[in-house]
Nucleic acid binder design. Structure first.
Length: 862
RNA sequence: GGGCGCUUAGCUCAGUUGGUUAGAGCUCCUCGCUUACACCGAGGAGGUCGGGGGUUCGAGUCCCUCAGCGCCCA
């Protein structure tokens, strides 16, 4: 064993057992002994594999992590004890925006794919660049190197915390999402999608974040209620027969108007269909059209179609074959030059008023001009309405036209959608009702998965494009690397058949500037963790995986995208089971959040209560249920751990009398029957992924064992009824204790390991999960309740008399049914000991069991 | 607007196919230092199971409906 803990001898039962400091001791010992090492010679049916969620390393670990990772760990430990070789890797997600920001701020650098790679680059700062520092542009490979340097420190902290929590991870299979192997897997999967036609590039209107200056995917959207206002705006009919009044919340887009639209059944506007009107201010002639998506009861019932105000505009634009008049640029400003079709001198003059302004400045200006022109009727009417935001963004999304990469996900293809829905049906969901979230999402998809991002840090889209003789990029025929070249960075690597000096030259090549969405990489976590093509033998032993544990908030992203990738690449589900964990709530039932300053750090709680107590709190929560943070529950957990320590110490005080000694006393056999029942219940619960139920059943059994059974037989093990009677109890106690320690091992790995090593060899965590057969033949547990009831009544008599429980009873009269009296006779000796009863009188009775006890006078104080 | 979940003791929650007087822990009260444990033990108090209706010999459990809370999606 490690030399670090000479004061700690696990084979000796201390005089005063303690839980202090056991986490560090056992974490080290487990690592040294390889207790959680995955046995990669095991065949697939002997393996239990877990697709662990890789936490984002740019943040810090909080109680939500402790909560959900504990749930998974209890399952992993159970499976290991049933004899499975458990593949339980850990990953760090250092891909994506949060890491990008941290690297920028820490080193004072900025990623720029146009910059050449600099070997041995030294960043200007390592922490706290001055406020006025202008970031230095560096290449993407350099940026990735800095990322790996920065996250390494955080990863150590994360690993220490997870070890201290007692996660039975095999750390030899650690991965990060930005490392070479992950980038290789991500690019390989993409190229295969491309080769099979599952990935494609397209120029199309796309939701765009003007701050991040990137396209975002449907899965990253959220609606937020925002104040807005309806404006009534009059369009003059081209035939001079008056005005058409529309309602809009975005008059700023008037210059982008390409048509008006009303519902085909709307009698008010039927006569106008096919005619034209002129936009106010700009004087552009636009048609009045019919489309069923126009809402009769919204505003005036007729709307302007702009390119593009919202997703409905995109549908109208596509289905009605309308021209494009984009006015919003990727920087969130009005484009400098007026759109096509805006040609009149007065229109151009009006446009110049807003060109270059930010959107909300332009909106103010347009409203002002409309007022002056008289085209705006009445005052704006304030409303609250849902507006689409990037989930990490601060300003409403705009829609701009850009070239992007997509992976098919059923959003535009009924057959594929059906296949993916079917995959969801075939997954086993824990809890089951979470499956609806999946089908809801897939059924609501309205487009393919946009995977390209106009960011600089991440896994690059691994393609180049030819540049033709005129210097134009040929997007239709991307140049792809061979798989043995991966990972590549098209901003620094040169495609096959070209020279470096042909970059960005006519008849040369150009690298795709974009990176892939972080989900495009994390959707491959089973392939990355299992080393896929890099170690096909390993991959074959763990895929498809047994379990994906994750939060229910990322069903639409991580879960769904993983199913999509696996469906294409392996024509299978990526896992058999998915377990969704709930949220941690404040004691006042609000979701815990940093901003409210109510986050408790895990390490403080580990120190205060011990890791096992914190795990107990986590494991007490039903799968998938949002749970209040509760230090009270941790106190209970600590109490349980302490009890296990002391109960074990007590039982081991009495050596096994004889190797062949077996329980013979009916009370002992009845207790073992209960233990057997608990083993059965806990096993069934674990097989159903209900760790909380397994804990609850085990815990109830353990407290009954301590408070009732041990108290009942304590006199007998002290030899009050002779060595044979004592031997029965002692062997029963040891059988039960062995089973109970193992039943608790998934929940309290540190405490159970401590007490197990006092008397057993090897780790409890590689011991065999208890089974009924090991208990031998057991008795009839129905005698226990009557015996317990009689003891309880004796105790109550003493409590009522406000006297010590050790007060002797000179005579106890039991009046009960024949069956209760029969049970009483079996437990009579033990009851005499436990209740200090000197003599018993029994009387058959048809009614309830009653015991009347005559107490001896209290002993005079000596 | 559609979907899903929740509502049981002061608090946090169990209650699996409908089956006697609805359970646990915490909290509270009373008592007890009894040689495994005072980081303990014994005992007690506390509930019209969200409202209403129905099925049934029997409903916390099944059905309908209403209300409140929460989440997902549009």
């Amino acid at each position: 064993m490690a030399a670090t803990d000479s004061a700690f001898d696990p084979t000796q039962i201390p005089e005063k057992p303690t839980l202090d400091g056991i986490e560090a001791v056992w974490a080290q010992r487990w690592q040294d002994d390889g207790v959680y090492t995955f046995n990669r010679s095991a065949s697939r049916d002997q393996v239990y594999s877990i697709d662990t969620p890789p936490p984002t390393v740019s943040g810090s670990l909080h109680m939500g992590h402790v909560f959900s990772y504990t749930h998974t760990d209890t399952i992993a430990r159970y499976q290991r004890m049933t004899g499975k070789s458990v593949f339980y890797p850990m990953g760090w997600d250092d891909n994506g925006l949060p890491t990008e920001r941290r690297v920028q701020n820490f080193f004072g650098v900025r990623c720029d794919p146009n910059v050449a790679y600099q070997p041995g680059f030294t960043p200007p700062f390592r922490g706290d660049p001055p406020k006025d520092h202008q970031p230095i542009s560096i290449s993407r490979p350099n940026f990735i190197e800095l990322c790996e340097e920065l996250t390494h420190e955080d990863e150590k902290v994360f690993e220490d915390l997870f070890r201290r929590l007692g996660l039975s991870v095999d750390w030899d299979y650690l991965y990060t999402t930005i490392e070479d192997r992950s980038r290789r897997a991500s690019q390989r999967a993409f190229l295969r999608n491309l080769a099979r036609g599952e990935a494609y590039t397209q120029e199309a209107p796309t939701l765009w974040d003007v701050d991040f200056k990137t396209a975002v995917a449907q899965a990253e959207l959220e609606d937020r209620e925002r104040p807005g206002a309806y404006h009534n705006i009059a369009f003059a009919r081209s035939d001079g027969q008056g005005d058409v009044v529309i309602d809009t919340t975005r008059p700023v887009l008037l210059a982008a108007c390409v048509a008006l639209v009303a519902h085909p059944d709307d009698d008010r506007y039927k006569p106008l269909f096919g005619t034209t009107v002129r936009t106010p201010l700009y004087g552009v002639e636009v048609p009045v059209l019919a489309h069923p998506l126009a809402q009769i009861d919204k505003g005036t019932g007729i709307a302007m179609i702009c390119t593009f105000g919202d997703l409905t505009d995109v549908i109208w634009w596509r289905e009605l074959n309308l021209p494009t008049r984009a006015i919003i640029g990727r920087d969130g400003r009005i484009i400098a030059t007026p759109p096509n079709g805006l040609e009149s001198a007065s229109g151009i003059a009006a446009y110049e008023q807003i060109a270059g302004l930010f959107i909300n400045q332009a909106q103010t200006k347009v409203v002002e001009m409309l007022r002056e022109s008289g085209a705006m009727l009445g005052e704006p009417r304030a409303i609250m309405h849902p507006v689409k935001f990037f989930e990490k963004g601060d300003r409403p999304l705009e829609i701009v036209t850009s070239r992007q990469w997509y992976i098919r996900n059923g959003g535009r293809d009924t057959d594929l959608r059906g296949a993916l829905l079917n995959r969801g049906e075939n997954l086993v969901w824990h809890p089951d009702h979470m499956r609806h979230r999946y089908s809801n999402w897939v059924e609501g998809l309205n487009g393919d998965w946009l995977i390209s991002r106009q960011r600089y840090f991440g896994v690059p889209v691994p393609v180049w494009y030819p540049v033709d003789a005129d210097g134009e990029t040929v997007h239709d025929s991307p140049i792809v690397p061979t798989e043995d070249m991966l990972p590549i960075d098209p901003s620094t690597d040169v495609p096959p058949g070209y020279n470096a000096d042909q970059r960005n030259q006519p008849n040369g090549f150009i690298g795709d500037p974009d990176v892939m969405d972080t989900w495009a990489t994390s959707s491959l976590s089973p392939q990355i963790a299992g080393k896929w093509e890099d170690d096909a033998d390993l991959f074959g032993r763990m895929f498809p995986m047994d379990l994906r544990p994750q939060g229910h908030d990322i069903i639409r992203t991580w879960l769904f995208s993983t199913v999509v990738r696996s469906n294409f690449e392996h024509d299978s589900l990526p896992w058999k089971n998915v377990a969704l964990s709930g949220w941690i709530l404040d004691p006042d039932r609000k979701k815990m959040s940093k901003s409210k300053g109510n986050v408790v750090t895990p390490i403080d709680l580990f120190e205060k209560f011990g890791s096992d107590a914190v795990r107990y709190w986590a494991a007490s929560a039903r799968p998938g249920i949002d749970t209040a943070f509760s230090e009270d529950q941790m106190k209970v957990g600590k109490k349980l751990a302490t009890k296990l320590l002391n109960a074990t110490k007590f039982v081991l005080t009495f050596p096994q009398p004889d190797v062949a000694a077996k329980p013979t006393n009916p009370v002992d056999l009845a207790m073992l029957a209960r233990v057997g029942e608990t083993i059965r219940e806990a096993t069934v619960a674990f097989d159903q992924y209900d760790y909380a139920r397994a804990l609850e059943r085990t815990e109830a059994m353990f407290w009954w064992f301590c408070d009732d059974y041990v108290e009942l037989v304590k006199g007998r093990v002290y030899n009050s009824q002779g060595p044979d009677a004592a031997g029965s109890a002692i062997s029963a106690l040891r059988l039960a204790l062995s089973a109970l320690q193992r039943l608790l091992a998934p929940f309290m790995p540190f405490t159970t390991e401590t007490v197990w090593r006092w008397w057993q060899s090897g780790s409890v965590h590689t011991a065999t999960w208890p089974n009924m057969a090991e208990l031998g033949s057991v008795g009839d547990s129905s005698i226990l309740d009557p015996i317990g009831e009689i003891l309880s009544q004796v105790r109550r008599a003493k409590t009522d008399a406000k006297t010590s429980q050790k007060t002797a009873v000179t005579e106890a009269a039991v009046s009960a049914s024949d069956s209760v009296l029969a049970a009483f006779e079996l437990g009579r000796g033990d009851l005499s000991d436990a209740g200090s009863v000197r003599s018993w009188v029994t009387a058959p009775s048809a009614g309830e069991t009653t015991v009347s006890a005559v107490l001896a006078p209290p002993e005079p104080a000596s």
